[in-house]
Simulated assay, not measured.
Amino acid sequence: METNAVSDVAAQLLQAYETGKPMPPIIESHPGATVGDAYRIQQEQVRTWLAGGEVVKGHKVGLSSAAMQEQMGVDQPDYGHLLSGMFHLEQQPIRTAGFLQPRIEPEIAFVLGKPLSGPGVTVADAARAVEFVLPALEIVDSRIQDWKISIVDTIADNASSGGVVLGSKPTPLSAVDLRLVGCTLHQRGELVATGAGGAVLGSPLNSLVWLANTLGPHGVTLEAGHVVLPGSMTRAFPVAAGDTVVATMSGLGSVTAVFDTPE
């Protein structure tokens, strides 16, 4: 894509945040767009957010489980940026009006104690860099109409990022086998899904390795203190005003997201 086209699509996505109206799929108007083009569009938005006072607080890996790849019709992971304004406190009402088409999914969040930079990062390197893990709920959202996304669409749209709720019980990595962490997801008191850490590329640690090695050639380092979301253990579920969603993870505790009551 030409530079002007990249800037134009980035502007349309930013406008969707402002108006609350999703845009048509990018791949329809730009059928030749590549994954590289999509990341350029994503970076254009990130620069705008940073200029507006936001701070990068971490990254997310999306589409890292077979369930999510099947649900979204894609065949590879992607990544997006987590900005300071995306983090919400547990048990505090989240404004659904701030989203377009929100869905929610349970994840094991890594909090880094040391910088991590690829290429060449191994599982051992990644494990040494993790200070602790937290149960988390990611709110995914799409600025693309009806979630009709290709891999290009979701990458350009900051990997369909929306918001993050972190649990408050830190657990050292050495105290848990992430592959075997079981998860139950309740919405409005009803069990809607179960999953396990092994659904995320075999282990969420593999997702962290993938991210570090993917970002490294672009000169990006995962910094100490950054939060990394490695991907969902279940499919994503739509959420609406009045919902309460609880993810309970064996050995890690639980995390609760509360959405504002309908007006």
Rank of each mutant, 00 (worst) to 15 (best):
E107K: 13
I108T: 06
I108Q: 06
I108G: 04
A109M: 09
F110A: 08
L112F: 07
L112R: 10
L112H: 09
G113I: 10
G113E: 09
G113Q: 01
K114C: 00
P115T: 02
P115I: 05
P115N: 11
P115Q: 10
P115V: 03
L116R: 10
L116K: 07
L116E: 03
S117Y: 09
S117F: 14
S117D: 00
S117L: 01
G118K: 06
P119T: 03
P119A: 02
P119Q: 00
G120E: 03
V121I: 14
V121G: 02
V121F: 04
V121M: 04
V121E: 01
T122N: 09
T122G: 05
T122A: 06
V123P: 00
V123D: 10
V123H: 09
A124S: 14
A124R: 01
D125N: 15
D125M: 05
D125E: 07
D125Q: 15
A126N: 13
A126H: 14
A126Y: 10
A127G: 00
A127W: 07
A127Y: 00
R128N: 10
R128M: 12
A129Y: 05
A129H: 08
A129K: 12
V130Q: 07
V130S: 07
V130M: 06
V130T: 12
E131M: 10
E131I: 00
F132N: 08
F132E: 02
F132Q: 01
V133D: 02
L134G: 08
P135N: 13
P135I: 06
A136P: 00
A136G: 09
A136W: 08
A136H: 00
A136V: 12
A136C: 13
L137E: 02
L137V: 05
E138S: 06
E138A: 14
E138N: 08
E138V: 02
I139N: 14
I139D: 13
V140I: 15
V140L: 11
D141H: 09
D141K: 04
S142C: 09
S142L: 11
R143L: 01
R143W: 03
R143M: 01
R143H: 08
Q145F: 13
Q145M: 13
Q145Y: 08
Q145D: 12
Q145C: 07
D146A: 15
D146F: 13
W147L: 10
W147N: 09
W147V: 01
K148A: 14
K148C: 07
K148P: 01
K148T: 11
I149L: 15
I149S: 00
I149Q: 11
I149R: 08
I149C: 13
S150F: 03
S150R: 12
I151Q: 14
V152H: 12
V152D: 14
D153W: 11
T154V: 15
T154N: 06
T154L: 01
T154M: 01
T154W: 09
I155F: 04
I155M: 07
A156C: 03
A156T: 04
A156E: 03
A156L: 02
A156M: 02
A156I: 01
D157V: 06
N158G: 04
